[in-house]
């Protein structure tokens, strides 16, 4: 999927919002997911996110995101299960047994609490990533620059951030084309062992590096042709204005934030 992790052109509620509102949403959600550890609160936040995705018709992109990071989420859950195997927690167990190791009695305990911990951490990671993706998917790089500029972020930094989001799709597309070109010449990347596949992916990295370098050079020449000079005060053809939709969205996410915090304190289960 070549349009993964990039802006998708649509005319949705989210797309029509002021980029600054979306930045504020992202910052608030990043802070929230960093300290909220209550499963109930996180599930509530997930429900809010799902409503936003549904209203903006971007649910299918989030399903794609979930499928791309499912291995990471599964790893997080398994990691917490493994870390908790030799600790007996309060609460019901999924499976528990005792054994002797070098003459010392040991307990092997697969607890529901460890599974809960794993799920909470996986959910936090997913919400963090999806908050970022929600903004990226609905804000093009020109709007990102404009939004950052209106927050008085220096132009070199705003431009640099915008440029990253302009270049990422190019690199993804180049990588896919190089894979196609090399397999067309006989490089096996489908029906081969994992080791051969890995070796062949390394082979592909060389032309990718050349292409990225050549694109980087072309872009820096273009900056020169357009007389980009960070010492000169720039003006702006476009300006951004907030609308009633930004007010509605802000009210919803503030209410959601307050509710999440309340739920966190009411249903908190300490994780350590």
């Amino acid at each position: 999927m070549r349009d993964f992790l990039q802006y998708v052109e649509m005319d949705s509620f989210l797309h029509r919002l002021d980029p600054r509102t979306k930045f504020a949403f992202f910052i608030m959600m990043s802070v929230l997911t960093s300290f909220i550890k209550s499963g109930v609160a996180l599930l509530f936040l997930l429900a809010v996110f799902m409503v936003i995705w549904q209203v903006s018709h971007i649910g299918k992109y989030m399903i794609t995101l979930l499928s791309k990071i499912k291995a990471l989420l599964l790893f997080i859950i398994l990691l917490w299960l493994a870390l908790g195997l030799f600790t007996v927690n309060i609460g019901p167990a999924i499976y528990r047994t005792s054994f002797q190791l070098f003459g010392t009695p040991r307990q092997f305990s697969l607890d529901w609490f460890d599974l809960y911990k794993g799920l909470v951490f996986a959910l936090r990671i997913f919400l963090m990533i999806s908050a970022f993706y929600t903004v990226i998917l609905s804000t093009n790089f020109s709007q990102i620059i404009l939004g950052l500029r209106s927050w008085k972020v220096p132009y070199p930094i705003s431009f640099g951030i915008g440029l990253v989001f302009q270049i990422i799709p190019m690199i993804i597309s180049e990588f896919a084309t190089i894979m196609e070109a090399q397999s067309s010449r006989g490089l096996e990347i489908e029906k081969c062992s994992a080791l051969t596949k890995m070796k062949n992916y390394i082979i592909i990295s060389l032309p990718l590096m050349f292409r990225v370098l050549s694109k980087g050079q072309a872009i820096s020449l273009a900056m020169h042709h357009y007389k980009l000079d960070f010492k000169v005060k720039r003006t702006s053809y476009k300006s951004i204005r907030s609308s009633w939709m930004d007010g509605v969205f802000s009210a919803v996410f503030i209410a959601a934030t307050v509710t999440t915090v309340v739920l966190h304190y009411r249903f908190n289960i300490p994780l350590s």
């Binding site: 020109s142 440029l163 273009a222 357009y226 007389k227 702006s236 053809y237």
Partner: peptide
């Protein structure tokens, strides 16, 4: 240049056209 995709800065047509003239203030 021969590759406009490497030269145009801006998501929309107006953004791309405005880039150079915004740079000269």
């Amino acid at each position: 240049t021969q590759a406009p995709e490497n030269q145009l800065f801006g998501y929309g047509v107006e953004d791309a056209i405005a880039f150079g003239i915004e740079n000269i203030g």
